[in-house]
């Protein structure tokens, strides 16, 4: 009986997850080699050559990786700090509601919200003007559509931190970290040692897979960098979609090349993470 359930589950997974993905990936590969596509003329390596010799994809990968890494690191750090310092406060209904409410806000809404707050003619700029800290629109610092992707990172943090707070509160309870900390203190450890040698290692070990998965998630973000990013370099999904929708129909295959390269990199990284997970076998 149990065997049958496993087989049905497996079939459903293949039909709804693996199959569409494989078909789409196969389509993208064929398109990237020019084998399909209304204006393409047959097998050719020119699109691959064009993309791999130009620095655009590489720059975008690096740019996206740095932004995602900073986003995840800051969110995780903020979440850890909040949980370790204020864990008791989360028993209060209203405080939990405020922290968790951003979870219900979709990415695109957060992006618009960030824009309205931080643009040069936005909310904070107007407050600064009222307090006479600045005298003109241009004097307000560059926080959205800027090179350092500050607006994007702020939005990522607002999207991720509530989730990580929730996660770490649960890990804290499940792993009985409160009891372990009491024990360490009884054995003579001070607050800093408890945090560095007991709480943090356990929490990070239990969540590293999720942290890496969120890094990959931010890497492929679309609406947030679309609204808050600049024109060059662009984050990966924005770049790939721009190439796919471009004016010159004969170059659309280049977008597919980028999509294939991106997918292969992420698939290899994911396989690598999960092969290591088997060895460690104690993370979530």
């Amino acid at each position: 009986m149990k065997n049958k359930e496993k087989h049905i589950g497996f079939t459903l997974f293949v039909v709804f997850a693996v199959l569409p993905f494989t078909l789409a990936f196969g389509y993208a590969i064929l398109y990237s080699f020019g084998l399909i596509g209304v204006v393409n003329e047959g097998f050719t390596l020119e699109f691959w050559k064009e993309v791999l010799t130009s620095s655009t994809l590489g720059e975008s990968f690096l740019y996206s990786a740095i932004i995602s890494a900073v986003g995840v690191l800051l969110s995780v750090s903020l979440a850890l700090w909040v949980v370790l310092k204020f864990k008791e406060s989360f028993n209060n209904k209203y405080l939990s509601f405020i922290i968790y409410m951003p979870l219900a806000v979709p990415g695109i809404v957060s992006a618009f919200f960030t824009y309205q707050l931080f643009a040069q003619a936005g909310f904070f700029a107007r407050i600064s003007y009222h307090f006479n800290w600045i005298n003109s629109v241009q004097q307000f610092p560059d926080l959205v559509n800027d090179n350092l992707a500050i607006g994007i990172i702020i939005t990522f943090i607002s999207l991720l931190t509530p989730f990580f707070i929730l996660l770490y509160l649960n890990i804290y309870k499940d792993e009985k970290i409160e009891e372990l900390s009491q024990l360490s203190k009884a054995l003579g450890a001070n607050k800093k040692q408890v945090a560095l040698k007991v709480s943090l290692p356990i929490m990070l070990k239990k969540s590293w897979v999720l942290i890496l998965l969120y890094f990959i998630f931010l890497l492929g973000a679309y609406e947030v960098p679309l609204i808050l990013g600049q024109e060059s370099p662009q984050m990966l999904s924005v770049l790939i979609l721009r190439e796919l929708k471009q004016f010159d129909l004969t170059k659309i295959s280049e977008g597919y090349v980028m999509a294939v390269v991106y997918t292969m990199v992420i698939m290899s990284a994911t396989l690598f993470i999960f092969s290591r997970k088997k060895l460690r076998n104690n993370a979530y």
Binding site: D142, N145, N147, L226, Q230, E231, S232
Partner: peptide, 9 residues
């Protein structure tokens, strides 16, 4: 705008 470092999409 923005010293020409970027242009609106």
């Amino acid at each position: 705008w923005k010293e020409g470092k970027t242009f609106p999409k």
